Amino acid sequence: MPWLFVMTALLPIVSLASARKGFALLPEGERPQKAWVSISVPWKIILLMGFFAFSYGIVEANAYRGYFGPHSSPGTFAVSGVVLLGVLVKRDKFDFNTLCRIALPLTVVALFLISVLGFTDDYLSGFCVAGGYTAFSILIMVLCSNLCYRYGVSAIWLFGMERSLRLVFMFLGRCMYEYGSVITVGSVRGTTIASGIAILAVVMGMFFLLSQKELSSKWGASFLVGPEGNGEAVRKQELADRCELLAKRFGLTSRETEVLILLAQRKTVGMIERELYIANGTAKAHVRHVYQKFDIHSREELFDLLGVDGLQENVEAKNAG
């Protein structure tokens, strides 16, 4: 525990120092500029994570009575391996909705095995608990990272909100299990009732998640004009929305969509290479594919298609108003 405390205290300091050094390596014109924008919390994905954390809290105590801890469980290793293999094989075509289809059945099975059927020391219970929770945790990180990338939201702020609410729901799940273990309603144990509530919440949440057409949705967040100096941030958000709509209409891949957003921001091929960590030939190939699918031949035609100049005028008018 003392070493855990020391490393936990050092981690933020080392991370900030590394980030500062990394940004210093960027040319002056490519460094991100701070701009304050009013934003509401993307409550939909955070609430979904809360449902899983609640379920995790209910079954957590009994799930790890065996040989494996919460972060070394074979379930965590297995799900992480599936994601890694999927990304290596499918690359940018990997469908992260797959994680939903992994997380839901594993969590439901774990709730039944532990709280309903009473298999408190069963190896399969721990495997399912850790696997389901790991799958949805990875999905939440992908969704939050996408919001940060597309809209320039502070990752520290967004992930901090998500993590805080997750811990609150996990604590509520633990409390529900502790009180449920000493309470019965008729002939039904309190833990069984708690598990039923958790299963209902998870199933409803997952159906809602799978009903979303795009993982790049705003998830309940709204991005508003705030104090002076944030026009560029608002323009970037609206431009990304337009790019997403066109990408869906013309059948662009996820990587081509990323390239399109950067092209719309007037970034050169060299800038795109550095930002996406891809080779020169690969970046040019993506640009060529975007042009072919849009049936255009120049950056000017792309700007006309996106209405970039008109978008800039709209933002300036909003700020002036």
Rank of each mutant, 00 (worst) to 15 (best):
L143A: 10
N146V: 00
C148M: 14
F159S: 08
V129D: 00
R166H: 11
C128V: 08
Y123G: 10
E162C: 05
V116P: 02
T134S: 09
V153T: 12
D122R: 01
Y151E: 10
M161V: 12
D121F: 09
D122A: 11
Y149K: 10
L143T: 04
S145G: 09
S137I: 08
F136V: 06
D121H: 00
L139V: 11
M170N: 05
F119Y: 07
V116D: 01
F159R: 03
G160L: 10
S115L: 12
D121S: 12
L139P: 01
L147A: 03
R150Q: 05
L172K: 13
R150D: 09
A135W: 07
C148V: 12
G132M: 02
F159V: 01
L158R: 04
L147E: 05
I138H: 12
L147K: 09
M161I: 09
S145V: 00
V153E: 07
M170Q: 14
V116K: 06
I114G: 05
C144H: 14
G132P: 00
S154I: 05
F171G: 00
V142W: 13
S164N: 08
G152V: 02
I140F: 00
E162D: 13
V116S: 07
N146M: 04
R166A: 15
S125L: 04
Y133P: 03
F169D: 01
Y133D: 11
L158I: 08
I156H: 12
C148A: 12
E162M: 07
L167I: 13
I156F: 15
D122V: 04
F136A: 12
L117R: 06
G173A: 05
V153S: 14
I114A: 11
F127D: 02
G160C: 12
R150N: 14
R163W: 11
M141E: 07
L143C: 05
A135T: 04
D122G: 10
S164Y: 15
G160E: 07
F171K: 03
L165G: 04
T134G: 02
L158T: 02
G126R: 06
L139H: 01
I114W: 09
C144E: 15
M141A: 00
I156K: 02
Y149W: 13
S125T: 03
F136H: 07
Y151L: 03
V116C: 06
I140W: 06
V142L: 04
M161A: 11
S145Y: 11
V153Q: 07
